[in-house]
Computed example of a mutant assay.
Amino acid sequence: MSRRTPAVSSSPVLRHGGVTLDQARHEATVEGRLLDLTPKEFAVLHLLLEAGGAPVPHDVIVRTLWDENLDPRTSAVRATVSRLRGKLGDPGLISADTGRGYRLCD
């Protein structure tokens, strides 16, 4: 009886401008510079990259990444996005579209 090692399926690498997110390695870089992200920051960046520049509504971020009991009016998302902007080094890379959500800019 032979044992076969299953093929390793790597998660896709997401890119937008100079930002790259490798799900398999749980790494994110901007212009080749490795980012030190918290799990929430990584998850927010992942959602924004998956959206490909389309706005991701605040309530979708809350429902997807936080506990369902979190007050939807909380500043947790805003604070996480603010920290993420700082770590990306380009505060203009993430835009807050009033009434529509957050999105990655080109």
Rank of each mutant, 00 (worst) to 15 (best):
E68K: 12
D106N: 09
M1A: 11
A7N: 04
V60R: 15
A51T: 01
R85L: 01
S11C: 00
R3D: 07
V8R: 15
Y102S: 04
L35C: 02
T98S: 15
V13Y: 01
F42S: 09
G86R: 13
T38M: 02
E68P: 00
V30G: 05
R15H: 13
E27H: 04
L84C: 13
T64K: 14
S11H: 08
M1W: 02
R100A: 13
L93S: 13
L47T: 04
G53Y: 08
T5A: 02
L70D: 04
H58A: 01
R103V: 07
F42T: 07
R78F: 05
E50M: 10
A96M: 03
V19I: 15
V44P: 10
V8P: 04
P72V: 14
T20E: 12
L35W: 11
R100T: 00
G86H: 11
V19E: 05
R33T: 08
V56S: 12
L49C: 08
G99F: 08
S82Q: 06
A76S: 13
G92N: 12
K87P: 04
S9P: 00
E41G: 00
L70C: 11
D36G: 07
T74K: 10
K40R: 08
R85W: 02
R33L: 05
L21G: 01
L88S: 09
T29F: 08
E27F: 01
R33E: 01
G18M: 02
G92Q: 15
